[in-house]
Design a protein around this nucleic acid. Structure first.
Length: 393
RNA sequence: GGACAGGUGCCCGAGCGGUUAAAGGGGACGGACUGUAAAUCCGUUGGCUUUGCCUACGUUGGUUCAAAUCCAACCCUGUCCA
């Protein structure tokens, strides 16, 4: 083959690759649980997937390489936090978030909707959008659905989230309706903005709201599905309602979301939450739990949770999990991890964050295998109880 | 040897007649953490037969209705002077 042709072919392939559409396919099911993959121009996301949270352009206390080698295919960034610092335009001038933080896999960005709840004392809501008072310097920042999408495009997020209103539970039905309907109107505006500004291969997800009211959840889901978005998230859960109500709400929500599109349960959660959500057809998760708990001394293992700050580990020479492939879990004694945490040494937070991110990825890998082999219910029955509580020795 | 300053709960340290089992830190012990205002936050931290009692602020004695708080002696510690 002439050299010129090879070059042309290569260029075409590159072009095709860079324009590869966003797509989702299911490879196996077990009950309602699905195992599959999301294809993005930046790589495949194996589902069910857990996305480590990298709010401010970093999965706290971890190098991108560690996150990658732990098995994560995609991670999160945050519109609100990156908008304030270093600023979306600056990130764009520096080549986008992927290059900036040295993560070449897919990135999903949250819209700032969670900060509507978590920073409720520092913001004002209107039909137009949210006005935040910066928690850093008090300056005022307006985030409309359109501006949220613009920021996410500037960051270069592969999966973008509509701006929504996340409310704390329990909440009155009126309050849930209000937030759900506003979120739907904002979904429409987000979609229009996304269609204008996004690049091929990027995807916008809508967010189902409605509190724990199944009728509201259904209405929200159906309205979003009518917008024909590339994926759908379930938001407003794990915000005070408790595990059982969350699971019940999911049971009444996922059936209203199309089977051929990815479903993302936002902000969840514990290993048990994830297992039950997968059983109800959820494909994607994110949560600060592995990293925050890690920084605070709590490790997740197949034997249950372990608080390394507890005195009982002071002279325990065993690693967290001798069978783990993660060096943090395999090669360091509990006694040493205990010492690091008690001493406030950064390495303690780093090692436990690493071990936890790796554990969560291992959990997802096991979940995917169990679905692929159609033994998911048995898998949950075998592991859930143990993962809920403290380590059983 | 002399002059000051000081000895408080595991440690540092506030209190300087009653509202003091004694502020505040730290440490220790335990808990929480779910689209990250979080390397953060919250408890507990003398004992007991626990709506109360006992023990406790260097030691001993005293003043007082009442003392960690006032007085005396003694024992320690620090700084300075000889």
């Amino acid at each position: 083959m002439p050299r010129a042709l090879i070059l042309l072919y290569t260029r075409c392939m590159q072009a095709t690759l860079s324009l590869a559409p966003f797509s989702f396919r299911t490879l196996a099911t077990s009950g309602l649980a699905r195992q599959g993959e999301i294809a993005t121009p930046r790589g495949i996301i194996r589902t069910p997937a857990f996305m480590p949270v990298g709010t401010a352009g970093t999965v706290k206390a971890l190098y991108p390489d560690q996150v990658k080698s732990a098995g994560a295919d995609i991670l999160l960034g945050n519109t609100y936090h990156l908008m304030l610092r270093p600023g979306a335009e600056r990130v764009a001038r520096l080549g986008g978030l992927h290059k900036f933080m040295r993560w070449d896999g897919p990135i999903l960005t949250d819209s700032g909707g969670f900060q509507v709840m978590s920073l409720s004392g520092l913001r004002k809501m209107s039909e137009k959008g949210v006005t935040f008072q910066s928690h850093i310097d008090g300056s005022t920042h307006h985030v409309s659905p359109e501006r949220s999408i613009e920021i996410q495009c500037l960051l270069g997020a592969d999966i973008q989230m509509q701006l929504d209103e996340c409310i704390e539970l329990p909440a009155s039905r009126e309050r849930a309706i209000e937030a759900m309907e506003l979120s739907l109107r904002w979904a429409e505006r987000s979609k229009r903005a996304f269609d204008d500004m996004s690049k091929p291969g990027q995807a916008l997800f809508g967010i189902v709201q409605g509190g724990t009211d199944l009728e509201l959840r259904q209405r929200s889901a159906e309205a979003l599905v009518a917008m024909d978005l590339p994926g759908y998230a379930v938001g407003g859960l794990a915000v005070g309602e408790g595990h059982d109500l969350m699971v019940a709400t999911l049971s009444g929500t996922t059936p209203h979301l199309p089977a051929h599109k990815p479903r993302y349960l936002m902000g969840v959660g514990t290993p048990a939450d994830i297992m039950e959500a997968v059983a109800r057809g959820i494909d994607m998760f994110d949560c600060v739990m592995p990293t925050r708990s890690g920084r605070h001394g709590q490790a997740f293992t197949w034997a249950g949770k372990i608080n390394l700050k507890n005195a009982r580990h002071a002279e325990d020479p065993r690693p967290l999990d001798a069978s783990s492939t993660c060096p943090a879990a395999r090669d360091y004694s509990r006694a040493y991890l205990h010492h690091l945490m008690k001493s406030g040494e950064h390495l303690g937070s780093m090692l436990l964050s690493w071990a936890n991110v790796a554990f969560y990825q291992d959990l997802m890998a096991e979940i995917r295998s169990a679905i692929a082999e159609d033994r998911y219910a048995a898998f949950v029955a075998e592991h859930k109880a143990r993962l809920v509580g403290a380590e059983v020795e």
